[in-house]
């Protein structure tokens, strides 16, 4: 059943994404940026899905601490790990864009820096998990860490913004934005496809985590004999 849901989600994501790639490629080049503006169709959805992922990780972590149900722990890891990959996509695409437009691979501007810090924060989550052997302790400590990390995200964001701001202001949903409606439609479809991909990957990772727990259980049973 779960297998079918995952396959259906992946298929739907592909159906949405493939024609949309064609639509995006046929869009006229942006006036000042040329070709490279198309990266935004992936850059922003990746960041948005990673952001939603961190919120899901927080909720799952709190629920684990309250219920001690390992399902929530598995969800927290799955969502964080996939989120890290998506945030990496965001960072890499942002870096490519910066190379073309700004002429440098990396600029310490507000949003790039915050995104990088978030990546490092949540990488710490995985490193902490890896270092802890006993499953209950691992889940508990990781959940505590996740709560600290999530709390830090908005503080990081504001402090970095005060520190320096160079980044172009968001184009979408802002009054000064100049995003034609047909671009907006392609963008939203891409957003949906990326979300679906995120969810499907999370579910696959979730299943791995459950298998891992079963292996751990069997291993301990064997050791006890």
């Amino acid at each position: 059943m779960r297998q079918k849901v995952i396959l259906a989600m992946l298929a739907l994501a592909a159906v949405l994404l493939l024609p949309n790639l064609y639509v995006i490629s046929m869009l006229p080049d942006e006036m000042r940026q040329g070709q490279i503006f198309r990266i935004i169709f992936f850059h922003v959805p990746a960041a948005a899905s990673a952001m939603i992922g961190s919120a899901v990780a927080l909720v799952a972590s709190v629920l684990f601490l309250l219920t001690k149900n390992f399902r929530y722990d598995a969800l927290a890891v799955a969502v964080t790990e996939v989120g890290l990959a998506f945030l990496a996509v965001n960072l890499v695409t942002g870096s490519i864009w910066a190379r073309v437009i700004w002429g440098v691979w990396w600029a310490w501007d507000a949003r790039l820096t915050s995104a990088l810090i978030c990546w490092v924060l949540y990488a710490g989550y995985l490193i902490l998990r890896q270092a802890l052997e006993e499953p209950t302790q691992r889940a508990t400590f990781a959940a505590v860490y996740s709560i600290f990390a999530f709390t830090d995200v908005p503080i990081v964001y504001f402090s970095i913004r005060w520190w320096r701001t160079l980044h172009p202001q968001p184009v979408f949903f802002s009054k000064t934005g100049s995003f034609p409606p047909d671009w907006g439609r392609a963008f939203m479809i891409n957003m949906l496809a990326v979300f679906l991909l995120y969810a499907a990957l999370t579910m696959i990772r979730l299943r791995q985590e459950e298998t891992q727990r079963e292996i751990d259980y069997l291993r301990r049973t064997v050791h006890a004999i």
Partner: peptide
């Protein structure tokens, strides 16, 4: 307290604490 039982705790503590401390 989180890292006290980890083998590499001397490395682990700064690794986890510094990013949170950035602001």
């Amino acid at each position: 307290a989180l890292t006290v039982n980890i083998r590499l705790r001397e490395v682990m503590l700064p690794l986890l604490v510094y990013p949170v401390l950035i602001p």
